[in-house]
């Protein structure tokens, strides 16, 4: 479902050329749970941004569900992002002045779905994360764990092909983090592909595969080795 061939990212400033990601190949199949690990500044976020079509690669090919995304216009990428990708961020990124229903509904608004269809999907997504009864609440009225669940519901509402999570438990205490990880595993078990960036090796070992980014080099690591380490 996702294939990257010799993909690389280089940043240029006036005098400096920085190779954020060296050419790499990666293939992710439907239903996989990939953990992306690596130290700060290693290129994890760049990898996630390119995967999520938020940033263009400098070279190489990126195929998503059979579509060569390097050739797409801004509008086509927005549409693909809306239909195929769900984002979960470390800091939840809910809009404080919108209630929970409106926050979860946001991606569906850009898909031009009918009001009834949007309502059905939002209610289903909130039920999935156990917050069906909080539709009219505002983000500030929820705990951090609940806010992240809303963010996951927002990502799920559009029934994406895969979910990109950037340190989804980074701002949560261990109990809430465990809850969110359990939820992600449930979602993955239900068939949604997940690519998750994390610092937490314990969480990484719960994924089906681990990819390590180090100094811009992406390589797959043996899950068993990581577990022992």
């Amino acid at each position: 479902m996702l294939r990257m061939n010799k993909l690389a990212k280089t940043y240029f400033t006036d005098t400096i050329k920085t190779q954020a990601l060296r050419p790499f190949d990666l293939e992710v199949k439907q239903g996989e749970f990939i953990a992306v690990v690596g130290p700060s500044g290693s290129g994890k976020t760049t990898f996630l941004n390119i995967t999520g079509l938020l940033e263009d690669a400098s070279e190489g090919e990126y195929w998503l569900d059979g579509v060569d995304v390097c050739t797409l216009s801004d509008k086509q990428k927005s549409r693909l992002r809306n239909e195929k990708i769900g984002f979960v961020f470390q800091s939840f990124n809910l809009i404080p002045e919108l209630n929970i229903f409106d926050n979860v509904e946001m991606p569906l608004r850009y898909r031009k779905l009918s009001s009834a269809e949007r309502k059905k999907r939002v209610e289903h997504a909130l039920a999935q994360v156990g917050l069906h009864s909080r539709q009219t609440h505002y983000p500030s009225q929820l705990s951090g764990g609940q806010q992240q669940r809303v963010a996951i519901a927002r990502a799920l509402a559009g029934s994406p092909a895969f979910l990109l999570a950037d340190e989804p438990t980074g701002n949560l205490d261990s109990t809430m983090a465990d809850g969110v990880m359990s939820l992600l595993k449930e979602i993955n078990a239900a068939g949604t592909t997940i690519i998750m960036v994390t610092h937490d090796l314990e969480q990484a070992t719960q994924a089906s595969r681990i990819v390590e980014v180090k100094d811009g080099v992406i390589c797959e690591v043996d899950k068993q080795t990581q577990a022992i380490a």
Binding site: D74, S78, N82, F87, M106, P107, Y110, G158
Partner: peptide, 16 residues
């Protein structure tokens, strides 16, 4: 900018 980034991420085009 945060809201713009979020809306872009969830599929809003520049035109939207």
């Amino acid at each position: 900018t945060a809201e713009v980034a979020l809306r872009r991420a969830v599929g809003a085009s520049s035109a939207d």
